[in-house]
Amino acid sequence: MSEAILRVFRGDANGGEEKEYKVPVEEGMVVLDALHYIQAEYDHDLAVRWNCKAAKCGSCSTEINGKPQLACKSRMDKFPEGQPITVYPIKAFPIMKDLVTDVSWNYEVNKKIPEFTPATDEEFTMYQEDVERIQEFRKCIECFLCQNVCHILRNHERKDAFFGPRFMIKIAERVMHPMEKIDRREFLKDEAGVGYCNITKCCTEVCPEDIHITDNGIIPLKERVADKYFDPLSWVLRKIKGK
């Protein structure tokens, strides 16, 4: 059985440092297992948030060797043997303790998004082609890895101006719903801040659910905003059609 060296961040909002641990590696082991081993064998007070160990609850988001990912989905055998593996909390949110951060800002943002608003007086038959596009966005497990990696939140700290990729696809889910009746483009442009995104696609790169956040969510939203605000031609056409 080989042995891995983990360098785990230990500390809180006042600061902290990496601490080194040696962990025996078993077949099929993931980084979360290694963290559990550390908890059991060395430091019982190591704080790590987790729940399902099946990449489905979105709790165990960390930065392993600098890459934002789920600790329960990162197999130990993909890291080069003998080299230390660093495990840090996600950077974009305030640290509580060790690997646990306070992601409550996301829930506050969520509350700002107007509810799904269907027409109540119309009968509608939903076909597969109508739901397919938005089903992709419903795979989201709210791990907030995309929020964490997005440089607008992570480095520029524009939480005041941009809702982040997770909520862009939440809005997209409503905007593209066949029964949705409200026009969210002004909200998207002025409150959610879709224009802040420079489509550098890091959100898509880290999403453990493989949601094409930029190609299928944010870019189509930008195009819809362009229809209303940046396209005089379609404005004239709408006027002619009387819409």
Binding site: V149, H151, I152, H156, G195, N198, T200, V206, F230
Partner: peptide, 29 residues
Amino acid sequence: SPPACAVNPLRSNKDYKGESSFPFILQNV
């Protein structure tokens, strides 16, 4: 801006506006 994911951008300016203001807002055309 940024050079790669989870790598700091050249400037971490707090007045970042991306494609929501001039000149990059012109990308909408």
